[in-house]
């Protein structure tokens, strides 16, 4: 530093406060992005409120936007598809994610943990389009050919196929977030439980999991949010037919796929275009709510263990 011209105290303070101003201005950007997301979804949905029957949008059971005589914009089939893939993937991912977390945090040999944790991170890093590709080319075929014709899924590409690969995306999120929660449970709690003669399983089940529950709830909410919003896996794996179905083994078309598939084919500033933005708004509202719950749970968790 000696060779540099020394700044006077006054100049240093000026320099310092201008940096502060720059940082404050740059920081507004993140808030602006969130505002822009909400604003542009809303601006582009507003025409749909008048041009498309809103009652029909929220309760209609037929999605047929390209019908030349009477286009129908009922989002129920899309919403049901989204709910089915989310529910099934949560059913797969939450127990497996939690089990793997407990294995990593409490049971695994340190050497195995050292390999397993990066492996989970690599799994988290696999692009969703690659998972969708695998679902489309390998897993769908496997499901179709592995069972006798009577036991086959109703459609070659189906919601279950997508849900399996959503689950594969959710597990790493579950593991990394709930592992943080499990690890932040104070050691003393665990030691006290063991000292009272509980087995390791009883300690895990009756002490560690209840203590980490808010963090685990947050992990569950965030991974469900991921499943609701994931696009490429469901576009490629679920068959993309917007029919109303409650059968997880038949094809469907979740909200995200609908936007991804139809946005490319629709002309700007038509009712169909605006409705797709309104679907985006619905999606945004769902994930916003899930995030809110996760945030709330996480805050409770940190309040408990500082």
């Amino acid at each position: 530093m000696a060779h540099k011209r020394r700044m006077t105290a006054k100049r240093r303070r000026f320099y310092d406060s201008s940096i502060f101003v720059i940082l404050s201005i740059v920081s507004v950007f993140a808030i602006l992005v969130l505002v822009a997301v909400a604003a542009f979804l809303l601006i582009n949905s507003i025409p749909a409120f008048t041009q498309v029957n809103q009652w029909g949008f929220f309760t209609g059971t037929v999605w047929d936007p390209t019908n030349p005589i009477e286009p129908l914009y009922g989002m129920v089939p899309l919403l049901v598809s989204t709910l089915i893939v989310t529910f099934v993937s949560a059913l797969i991912a939450i127990p497996i994610g939690l089990g793997a977390t407990i294995y990593l945090a409490e049971i695994a040999h340190p050497k195995i943990r050292k390999v397993m944790k990066p492996a989970v991170e690599v799994l988290a890093g696999i692009p969703s389009v690659v998972l969708g590709f695998f679902a489309l080319t390998v897993f769908a075929k496997f499901m179709w050919e592995a069972f006798a014709p009577a036991w086959r899924p109703s459609d070659y590409l189906n919601l279950f196929n997508g849900a399996v690969f959503l689950a594969i995306m959710m597990v790493p999120i579950m593991v990394s977030l709930s592992e943080d929660a499990v690890n932040s449970v104070p050691r003393s709690l665990k030691e006290a439980s063991m000292a009272l003669g509980m087995t390791r399983w009883e300690t895990v089940w009756k002490v560690i999991i209840p203590a980490a529950r808010p963090g685990i709830v947050a992990a569950v909410m965030l991974s469900i949010g991921r499943a609701v919003g994931e696009t490429m896996v469901v576009v490629m794996a679920t068959g993309s037919s917007p029919q109303l179905t409650f059968d997880p083994f038949s094809s469907g078309q979740p909200i995200t796929s609908t936007i991804a598939i139809e946005m490319g084919e629709v002309a700007a500033n038509t009712p169909h275009y605006y409705v797709l933005f309104e679907l985006g708004l619905v999606l945004f509202a769902i994930t916003f709510a899930l995030n809110y719950v996760a945030d709330w749970a996480m805050r409770r968790h940190t309040e408990r263990y500082q």
Partner: peptide, 19 residues
Amino acid sequence: AVNNLAGVPSIVYGLLGLG
């Protein structure tokens, strides 16, 4: 804002980019 942005689906970012 940051927490919420992290949860926004990628397709919704696509809609933002388009709109």
